[in-house]
Amino acid sequence: MGREHEWFLSTLESNSVLILIVAVLTLILLRLLFVIHRTGKPLRPTSAKPLSTLIVLRSGGHTAEMLNLLAALQKDRLYPRYYIAAATDNMSLQKAQTFESSSDDEMGKGKAEYMKIYRSHEVGQSYITSVGTTLVATAHALWLMIKIRPQVILCNGPGTCIPICAIAHLFKVLGIRWSSIFYVESIARVKRFSLSGLVLYKLRMANQLYVQWPQLQRKYPRSIYVGCLM
């Protein structure tokens, strides 16, 4: 009788743990579906308060496109501004500082910070060694996201935006912070998305994803065609 009682209690305990795990996973799945559903809805302005904004830069034309985009936005609504570029990118943050110093945004002027982030994969790096660097880059991105906790994320193609956007999406699911992600595909992408754009599109992580060519919008119908921004 004693053994049967112990077996019953052990079975009950095991079933309770299993039920708890299933319940937690179900809640996470429901929350994930809610986040995906809400992310795909049009955004509505909630208040006139400024929004902390994280801007992901990349060397070359990507940074020029992003700064042109910022020049056309209401920068008095987007501050403080946090500019992030890859650790090996020596030019983008300098261009951002020049842009900020010449800005006519008196309210937001002086409220910009400049940061670097580790890259998960360098050009020519083997896939085996990139596993370790990807883990380091993800940990660094997590630390930056905890520190900044932006309300808006702007990006237009650099691979460094993927861990940042993925962490922002995780924060949404966990209820830590809701960051609206806006992705603008580069003007150089005429017929297909970049890898970063494709990941954000397929996983529905971006709140709004803009393209600069109509044929690209036809191929990816959930994107928004805005014309050439350059």
Rank of each mutant, 00 (worst) to 15 (best):
E122T: 06
E122V: 02
E122Y: 04
E122W: 00
Q125V: 04
S126C: 03
Y127L: 15
Y127Q: 06
I128C: 15
I128W: 12
T129L: 08
S130E: 08
S130F: 05
S130A: 08
T133M: 15
T133W: 15
T134G: 15
T134E: 12
T134I: 12
L135T: 01
A137T: 08
T138N: 14
T138R: 14
T138K: 12
A139V: 09
A139Q: 02
H140N: 04
H140P: 06
A141N: 14
L142R: 04
W143Y: 10
L144S: 11
K147V: 09
I148D: 01
P150F: 09
Q151K: 13
L154V: 00
L154P: 07
L154N: 11
C155N: 11
N156G: 04
G157S: 08
G157Y: 03
T160N: 07
C161W: 00
P163W: 04
I164Q: 05
C165S: 10
C165T: 08
C165P: 14
A166W: 02
I167C: 05
A168K: 01
H169A: 13
F171R: 02
K172G: 05
K172C: 12
L174P: 08
L174S: 06
G175P: 04
I176H: 00
R177V: 06
R177T: 08
W178G: 07
S179D: 00
S180R: 09
I181S: 13
I181A: 14
I181G: 13
Y183D: 05
V184S: 09
E185F: 00
E185Q: 02
E185L: 01
S186T: 10
I187K: 03
A188I: 11
R189E: 01
K191V: 11
R192G: 08
F193H: 08
S194Q: 03
S194V: 15
